[in-house]
Structure formats: structure tokens, C-alpha cells
Design a protein around this nucleic acid. Structure first.
Lengths: 197, 197
DNA sequence: CAACAATGTAGTCTATGACAACAATGCTGT
DNA sequence: ACAGCATTGTTGTCATAGACTACATTGTTG
């Protein structure tokens, strides 16, 4: 946007941003390094200076995705006030929103996490999940959730939210049923988790 | 395996079977029509007679996947006896087993379901999900689950199971934690769902 | 300002998916 | 039996992609 000297200046960023758009609009499969280069106005070999191969671009995309996801989750939780249930619902809704708006990106994020050795992606993922863990800890402190390792308790919650997102992006539930389903799920979770139910 | 007259005889099946293997071993991205043709021993143009394009092959793969998934779920439920909880656990475990053994295939199945117009895939999917619905109905009849539309109640359960599978294939939980997580999740579901908890 | 590193360009190779023209096989009705 | 036709495979071609190399341009630093 700023200018484009014959050294582009920030090709890496430009490529990542355009890539994220393309992934959102047309899916990962349609993402081509050459087309990306054309879109950004550089030659077909230029991206190679920033991403050794296509997979490296996808990994970087995933890492950026985790950072944005973490930010959105935190923003949702913080914007929902102090009460646990409100924060829980807001965070779950934010996750599902991300997952439905950027379904392919999220898929990429999950796929990359298990293959990767470079810790950068894992760290970004951990930062994103930390929001959920903190939420669990708050719930436990308030007595709304049973005690125990937050990782373990949070996993069921996380799985459910992720599953709901998958059902929506998979077309198994309509967008209209989403709120109802989310409410049901958080309800089950809270009732099932209270110590002496 | 049988023989190969110059008309292969059942190219379509052979392609699908080899494709399923390749997807399981090396992922969807590495699936190439031409390589498939080579593997099966036909020329690179032959698959076109059975699948107009690559996507058609993937759709057929997804449909076959739903049929197998349905069969495995039903077999698991039926093999677990009469008791509801045992059937529930067995079915959930069977789903997760499928989802982890054939993660990429499952992804394909979900992806295809939402884009497709031809009802064949949807019908296969519905047959698979019917197993879960029947399970819910049994739970309701026995009073273990709250009343209401089985579709709605089942959705939360299904989402949770699907989410657990996603967490495992995504490398967020280790295979060793799987049993524990599944037990936690079904526990939450049952406690959260009992009418007068 | 002279090396040197970083970044971009141009050309090439191999593989793929899609398509068309053609060949071989199987089937059907008479 | 067999002529005509539909199925199914084969071969060749085209456009495009990813990966790699040699080379050019720009920026930086001693």
C-alpha cells in the first residue's frame, strides 16, 4: 500500500495478507504461489526468498492465524465483563465465529500443529489456548467448575466448541441453529461439571 | 487382483480403493489422478471415464467413507450389548477410532457435504448419523437423557465426539489421553443431560 | 566506495489436471 | 451371426503449478 520500490519492502507481509484473503475466499487448494506473486505484483520466483516452499507459507499462515485467534478470544473474554458464564459464552461464540469465518485457515492451523517441529507455531497456539485455560481457572475459583487440572477440564469444553464449529462449517447444522446449539452445549458443560450436581 | 482384461472390469472400484489407501498414507494433497492410474495399471486418461474431474473422485471417496463409518458405528453399538451407557461409549470410541485412522478422509467427508447438490452423499451421511440418533432415542426411552428432539440432543454429543477427534488428530491431545478424555466427555454429557440432576 | 548480503527476475524442468481424437471391447437387436 | 452403437481405455496436447538455478538489482557495512 505504501510504495513499491523495486525491492518491495515488505513482500512477506503482503504475501501473507493476500494469502489469507485467498484462503478465505477460495480455499487452501486454490492457493498458488505464482498467483500470489502476480496478485502482489512480483515475479513468480520472488516468494521463494521468504518461503522456501509452499508448505512454509502455509505454516506461517497458521502461525499468524493462532495469533489472531488468541487476540480475538482474549478480546471477547475481556469485553464480556467479570462474570464467569458471560465470559464463557462470549469466548465460545468468538471461537465459533473465527472457526466459521476462517474455516480453512483453522483447518490449516490444526494440520500444521501436529507436523511441525519449529516451536514458533506451538507457542502461538499455546498463547491462544491460554485464554481458555484462564477461563477454566476462573470458573474453578468461583466454584462453577469442578477442581482438577484446568488442562483436563478445559479439554472437554474446547472439544465441544471445536466440534460445534466443525458441524457448522460442515453444513450439518445451519447457522440459525448455532446460538441454540452453543447455549445447549455450555449448559451441558456447566451442569455436568458442577461438583455436586 | 482377479484379472485384467483390456477393459479393466472394475476400474472405478480399484481407483477408489487405491485412493483411500493413498489418502490415509499421504494425505489428500498428495492424491494424484495420474499416479492413481499408474498404481492401478491404466493410462492417465482412464480415470476420467469414471470421475469427470478430481473433485468427483473425492466426492465418491467421501460417500464411501460415510458408508463405512455408518457400518462401523452400527457394528460397535450392536456389539456392545443392550445397556445404554455401554453402547454410548462403544459408539463414541468407534467414531474416534475412525476419525483418527482416517482423519483426512473424514475431513473430506465434512468438506464435501456442504458443497454438494447430489443427494447421494447426503443420504450416506444421514444413514451414518442415524446410528447416533437411535442411540439418543434409546437413552431417552430409558430416562438417561432428557426428552426433546433427538436431533437437538444428539448434536451436542456429536459435536463433542467430533471435537475430541479433531483434538487428537490435531496433536493437541496425545493418544494416551484419549480414553480419559472420552470418559470425561461422556460423563459430562450424561450428568449434564439427566433430567433432574 | 568497494565488497557483500538480501531481495527480486527470468528461464527451465517435471508433474498435474483437463481435454480431444482415436482405438478396442462389450452389448443389443435383428 | 453380425452390424451398429455405447462403454471404456489410450495417446497426445495444453496450460499451469512448484521447485530449482543463474543472474540482476538494490541496500548495507566496513
Amino acid at each position: 500500500m505504501t510504495e513499491r520500490p523495486y525491492h518491495h519492502g515488505n513482500l512477506r507481509m503482503a504475501l501473507l495478507e493476500q494469502a489469507e484473503r485467498t484462503v478465505r475466499d477460495r480455499g487452501v487448494q486454490d492457493l498458488s504461489l505464482r498467483e500470489l506473486a502476480r496478485d502482489v505484483g512480483v515475479s513468480h520466483g520472488a516468494p521463494r526468498r521468504h518461503f522456501p516452499d509452499r508448505q512454509a507459507l502455509l505454516d506461517a499462515l497458521a502461525e499468524a492465524g493462532f495469533e489472531r485467534l488468541g487476540a480475538e478470544l482474549r478480546s471477547a473474554a475481556d469485553g464480556a465483563g467479570e462474570e464467569f458464564q458471560a465470559r464463557l459464552r462470549a469466548t465460545a461464540a468468538a471461537y465459533v465465529r473465527f472457526a466459521t469465518r476462517d474455516a480453512e485457515l483453522l483447518e490449516l492451523m490444526f494440520a500444521g500443529k501436529h507436523r511441525e517441529q519449529s516451536g514458533a507455531l506451538h507457542e502461538a497456539a499455546d498463547r491462544a489456548f491460554a485464554v481458555i485455560l484462564e477461563l477454566i481457572e476462573q470458573g474453578q475459583a468461583e466454584g462453577a467448575l469442578e477442581r482438577g487440572e484446568p488442562e483436563r477440564v478445559g479439554l472437554v469444553l474446547f472439544a465441544t466448541i471445536q466440534g460445534i464449529a466443525a458441524l457448522v462449517t460442515g453444513g450439518i447444522v445451519q447457522a440459525g441453529q448455532l446460538d441454540e446449539l452453543l447455549a445447549d452445549a455450555t449448559g451441558y458443560f456447566l451442569r455436568g461439571s458442577r461438583i455436586a450436581a
